[in-house]
Amino acid sequence: MQKTALVPYAHLPRAHHDRHVLTSTVDVLGVAHWLLTERAPQPAGDLPPFDALVVSVHPGGNVELTELSAVRARWPRLDRLPHGGFVVAAPRARRYEDANQVQVFDALGREMSSFSVGDAIEHLLVDEDGYIWVGHFYENPAGIRRWSATGRLAWTSDGARIPGLFDCYALNVSGTTAWACPYTDFPLVEIHPDRPDRAVRVWANRVRGAKAVAVHRDRVVFYGGYGEERDRLAHGELTETSVEPTDAGVLTLPDGPAPGRRRVVGRASRIYVQAEPFTAWGVFDIGG
């Protein structure tokens, strides 16, 4: 099977390698971010609010540091607002029923607002207008929703006629548009929240279990799968009603091996992959 190597994209500066990486992401503008603490959180017990450092590496290599005060999420999701500031969210809401599940920080690291988006966050991605897209896993039937940075629900998949939306396996946010590939039917779904009369378009899809998706014009690629297809890269073309498979291979790290434990982020035509120890991002670009 053909192998495709990730292209090196961004690295956490070595000066910060002594800290623990709580989480990391790549935002809608292509900036990589790491949320760091002095030590790893303990697996059990209450965690008091703590200070954290966000290290941001821009595509040109410039590094930006932001101190966040009184972070509450033990295993957080992270993204950046387009005009500065960050969103930090706890994936589980059961211990955050006081509306503190999602924290929004300004560019100086001060909390501006907090609210709840519901339990079982699988994906959290901010779009170029500053709205927060949340894809839930199976323990929350809410599916896919879009929130303002002040906690106002701006779009919901309720009633959107997305077949088999039980678990948001893959979510890609580019501009103000979202692409998803949800369990159980795994259709490819395009969501335009600003088009109320035609917000959702669905293509039937035969690729199962993908954890990330990228789209460029009439081309699509799915990354991941079940069992031996964990590192699969499945290519397809969009027809009027379906995704037609064209090729398949495997995605590897830049130096050749499989990623192993990893994080993935889909943005437009790109899939970003980060493997342990989570200090570097690689990229595959279907449009490149």
Rank of each mutant, 00 (worst) to 15 (best):
P43H: 08
L47V: 13
A44Q: 10
L29W: 14
W34K: 02
P41Q: 14
V26Q: 01
V28D: 02
Q42S: 13
L47G: 08
H33I: 03
A44Y: 12
P49K: 09
A52Y: 04
L29N: 14
P41I: 06
G45W: 08
D51E: 11
L35N: 02
P49D: 12
D51Y: 09
L47Q: 13
T25E: 03
A52N: 04
L36M: 12
V26L: 01
P48D: 15
V28N: 06
Q42F: 14
W34S: 02
E38S: 10
P41F: 13
L36V: 06
S24H: 05
E38M: 08
T23E: 06
P48A: 15
W34N: 01
H33C: 06
T37D: 07
D51K: 05
H33W: 11
A44M: 11
S24M: 08
L35D: 01
A32E: 01
L35T: 01
G45C: 08
E38Y: 05
Q42H: 15
T23V: 12
D27K: 00
G45I: 04
E38H: 11
A44P: 00
R39V: 13
L47A: 12
F50R: 14
V28E: 04
D46W: 13
R39F: 13
A44G: 05
L29P: 02
L35E: 00
V31F: 05
